[in-house]
Write a protein that binds this DNA or RNA. Structure first.
Lengths: 382, 382
DNA sequence: CTTTGTTTGTTAGGCTGCCTAATAATATGG
DNA sequence: CCATATTATTAGGCAGCCTAACAAACAAAG
């Protein structure tokens, strides 16, 4: 875990972070954006070159005058692995520190998993083994791994026994000496929406995932809120039903809003006159998209219930923006009704739909892995 | 608003902040805690003395050796005013930057107010006028004011017209050139619990106020979460009732959980055999405290409903700790049932009861005013 | 092909803000 | 009064940034 300390001057660190953030850049660009003078840029670059962290990749001319040399994070500096341990597929990305993709893979699971199981662990092990196999010599060291899992996650100081997070290691062991971090999958997706998706440029927002399960990822001032027990955003456990005379049942909201119970209700309430009920949510959404009135009615009814959940979240944290995502939630058919309900019940909040689809989680994990990798290189905590 | 810039060196600023934070201290103490060398402490102190921000107040001996000089923030450096514009009383504190109380007052309102009214504004105006009247010459300038109000609050860039916050200024104008900040009263109370009360030493927690209205103050990593529209913690607007087949009503949770509707239910359901129903919550709590079974049943039933609301908040943000406060919520009778319900429905969260009672809000406002004052002195934003 | 103007990168030197080390100034206790 | 402990100041150094001036590379115009 511990490699050589490698302390950098403040400006060099800022330059490294900027190159990680935005990819190849010239010195004038970096100096401008970071507010550093040319001599300081010179020193910082010399420092980073010396450490083998950056490399020149040619020169660019911007109108008149001398051409500026373009630099990027050196491939040789190292790489990261991001894994999305999903319920139907395992996705893996192996990338440089500035997120140039070096290897990617998609591994279907034998059957859909409702929770984190040893079977998922096995496929993760296979995916990572394959990635290590294909690693080339000049890719530098594997600096960090982030694995996105569909459970709540606590740090080493927390009560790891109380969560299911350790299940990921039943059939998988991370390579020795490699920094390996577990992160909740919804939080990863939120990170991706923040950097690349529907929430770009927003410092504060919530990402609501709707599929077999429901969950919320909270981004507050550019930082994910994990919660003291890793349970922030576990909105499957909101009090439900909640009304005078009714007894709430723990976890009932997740079951009720989740797509399995929803589809059961749809099938039970499907009129004979509308033909065969839809087999799954994809078919339901497809029919609703074609204008089938019965399908639309169900989708809108469900959207109103999702809106009711979001109104709760908006009342508690007032995120200003809620991004809908997940296998079911990403459908643009939901948005209008959700927005209407939220506006009626709670405070103003923009509602948008995810633009990253199934890639969101692994892209967010990659992003977090790169952050970890920079910390590992510099011996920084957190 | 703008006074002379007055830039300080980093260490001097740290020393000033430390003195503001913890009151009178000696140089060795400060140097130790801030990790500053003795020469740096000397320079910082010289700088602060020069600027008239600190003053020596004697010397202290710690065992053997030379006595250490003790310093504090100079009274002459300036003062702040904190106002709690509550529903039954206006509380005011006028304090030095290190929170030595110079003047305090308590002004009852003619009658209890459900929302922020012009009448409250009038009493605030009178309270502030009286405080300015009593200000002595050597107290230095009035650097900042914070007024705690029971509405959502947005900054100048937000849509102030959409909130009721401006009502505070109907009959009151802050002294010219004085930095005046409005802050939600529940958030102020949370700040006080953080520094002095039941949440001392906790970086993340939620403060739930239960009285005529309900509200949540969210402290995340030592920072209040105000929300994008100043509506974070406005849990009076959570979806309620929320159950299949029921139609939620905006703001219904506040009415239902709030003490007015609660007492109406108590009275309606009060058996003849138990004698005259209690006139208000104080009487209800008093009787419950004496062991009256009917009163206890109602208090516990209500506590379960409060617990159901808290379970929602815990599911969304997982604060680890929830402090119960407010006129009704501060009763220790609530805690056991609330804790039981939260543990049953959601994730582990400690439940405690406020220790600051009615002073919480004004103490939090004072704290925030001091922070603002330091920023004003140094020309810093936010 | 040379000149000119523009942009990029380097060198020289200075300033700020912190540090360590040494010295001076009190205090307590035999 | 002297030994010891603690506090404060002085002297000198170093890291990390800056500005100013200069050298190098390039495009476009003559």
């Amino acid at each position: 875990m511990t490699r050589k300390p490698l302390t950098l001057t403040g400006s060099a660190l800022a330059v490294l972070r900027a190159l990680v953030e935005r990819g190849p850049s010239t010195r004038p660009q970096l100096g401008q954006d970071l507010g550093l003078s040319r001599p300081t840029m010179s020193a910082a670059m010399a420092e980073l070159m010396e450490a083998g962290l950056v490399e020149p990749i040619g020169s660019v001319h911007g109108g008149m005058g001398r051409r500026a040399v373009e630099y990027r994070v050196a491939t040789h500096a190292g790489h990261v692995i991001a894994v999305d341990a999903g319920s139907t597929h395992i996705r893996l990305r192996l990338s440089t520190l500035d997120r140039r993709l070096l290897h990617a893979s998609l591994h279907p699971l034998p059957k859909s998993q409702y929770s984190l199981t040893p079977q998922i662990s096995s496929v993760v092990a296979a995916a990572v083994a394959e990635a290590l196999e294909k690693t080339e010599a000049d890719w530098g060291p594997l600096l960090a791994m982030v694995i996105a899992i569909p459970t709540r996650v606590v740090g080493p100081e927390g009560d790891t026994a109380a969560t299911d997070q350790e299940v990921i290691f039943t059939n998988f062991a991370p390579p020795p000496q490699v920094d390996c971090t577990l992160v909740n999958n919804v939080n990863c997706a939120a990170v991706a929406e923040y950097h690349y998706g529907a929430a770009r440029g927003r410092q504060t927002f919530a990402f609501m995932q709707v599929g077999v399960k429901i969950g919320l990822g909270l981004m507050l001032n550019g930082q994910i809120l994990p919660g003291v027990n890793g349970a922030a955003g576990e909105i499957g456990h909101i009090t439900f039903p909640f009304a005078p005379g009714l007894t709430p049942v723990p976890g009932e909201a997740e079951r009720y809003i989740g797509t399995e119970a929803f589809m059961t209700r749809v099938r039970a309430d499907w009129p004979e006159s509308s033909g065969r009920p839809p087999a799954d949510t994809y078919e339901l959404l497809a029919r609703a998209g074609e204008g089938d009135a019965t399908a639309l009615r169900h989708v809108e009814g469900h959207a109103a219930e999702i809106g009711a959940v979001i109104a709760i979240c908006v009342s508690v944290i007032d995120p200003g923006l809620v991004v809908l995502g997940g296998g079911y939630g990403a459908s643009p058919l939901l948005r209008p009704k959700v927005e209407e309900v939220v506006r009626h019940l709670a405070f103003p909040a923009e509602i948008t739909t995810s633009t990253l689809a199934a890639e969101a989680t692994v892209l967010g994990a990659e992003r977090l892995a790169v952050d970890r990798a920079v910390c590992v290189l510099l011996g920084l905590p957190a």
